[in-house]
């Protein structure tokens, strides 16, 4: 114990931090290398992080349809449609509910709130069979609708919980003043509370987007035709014929990461506040 303590004290903090950053970034660097090299270089030389020779062939091939049915632009489009629709639907439905939970007292409030939260307790796979049967009956299998509705299982509780927290942080005095001036409840909500909640709405939207972009289980279950695949499913196509095409696969994985990484880097502050505030409210 004492030896460990000594060692810990002597290790400079910067070395620890450097190790952690390397741990976090090395897998990305290793993917980037593979995506920038021709296959021969990948499979012959000893492992190296600097690609040689550099080629953009893997990225160029993303844009052209290939024989085994890998259509990156189509997967990308599917992912964009599903992720944006999920964010929009969740915000539309959750915002008024979250507002009610934050501002009003009413019978059954506590029970309802726990009802929404309880969803978080169970794994997505528990809802899968009934939703699969429901989507089959409704004729929605293999459509965007199946995914957008399925994604409500995680986006709805997340949005209600986060937004309630953000509304709690907004003083209601302005709404009270608007009400005294004769505005209705709905007007006070739409014209006074909503503009004040914009940072919270942005934060919630980013978090939902990142989760929907990465969702795998529902997509795997509900989608069967190649042209309806989202990006997470699209990656599997690289394994269809025996030896995987690592160059193409890593280029796709990086292409898939770019949108979320950009959203994250630009709006980092909002994302961080959503992640910590929402969780610490439990």
């Amino acid at each position: 114990m004492r030896a460990a303590r000594e060692a810990l004290r002597r290790t400079p903090r910067s070395a620890v931090l450097l190790g952690l950053v390397a741990f976090s970034l090395l897998p990305f660097a290793w993917m980037l290398t593979a995506s920038l090299e021709p296959p021969q270089a990948l499979y012959t030389a000893a492992p190296h992080l600097v690609p040689r020779p550099v080629t953009l062939a893997n990225y160029a091939s993303l844009l052209s349809p290939r024989e085994q049915g890998v259509y990156f632009p189509r997967y990308f489009l599917n992912s964009v449609v599903v992720a944006f629709s999920t964010v929009a639907l969740a915000l539309l439905v959750a915002t008024p509910a979250a507002y009610a939970f934050s501002r009003f007292t009413f019978r059954g409030k506590g029970m309802l709130m726990y009802g929404f939260l309880a969803q978080n307790l169970f794994p997505g796979v528990n809802f899968l069979v009934p939703l699969f049967i429901l989507m089959t009956v409704l004729g929605l299998r293999d459509t965007y609708g199946a995914l957008i509705i399925g994604y409500l299982t995680f986006s709805l509780p997340l949005n209600i919980w986060l937004l309630r927290g953000f509304f709690d942080g907004i003083p209601p005095e302005m709404e009270v003043a608007a009400r005294l001036d004769g505005a209705g409840v709905v007007r006070a909500f739409v014209e006074v509370a909503l503009p004040a909640a914009v940072p919270g709405l942005v934060a919630t939207a980013i978090y939902t987007f990142i989760l929907a972009w990465d969702e795998y289980l529902y997509a795997l279950t509900m989608i069967s035709s190649a042209d309806m695949r989202t990006l997470p499913l699209g990656l599997f196509a690289y394994f269809s014929e025996g030896v995987p095409d690592w160059g193409g696969l890593t280029a796709t994985a990086i292409g898939m990461s770019i949108p979320v990484v950009i959203v994250f880097l630009v709006l980092q502050r909002y994302f961080v506040s959503a992640l910590t505030k929402g969780a610490l409210k439990y």
Binding site: P96, A97, F101, A118, Q119, P130, L131, L134, I149, V185
Partner: peptide, 27 residues
């Protein structure tokens, strides 16, 4: 004022019933 909160919660509640309560009971 007693009805308003329920109107606000209603759409979310309806969807909650479809994607959680129904699958749970059906399971």
């Amino acid at each position: 004022s007693r009805v308003v909160p329920y109107v606000f919660v209603c759409p979310a509640l309806a969807l909650l019933l479809v994607v959680t309560a129904y699958p749970f009971a059906y399971s």
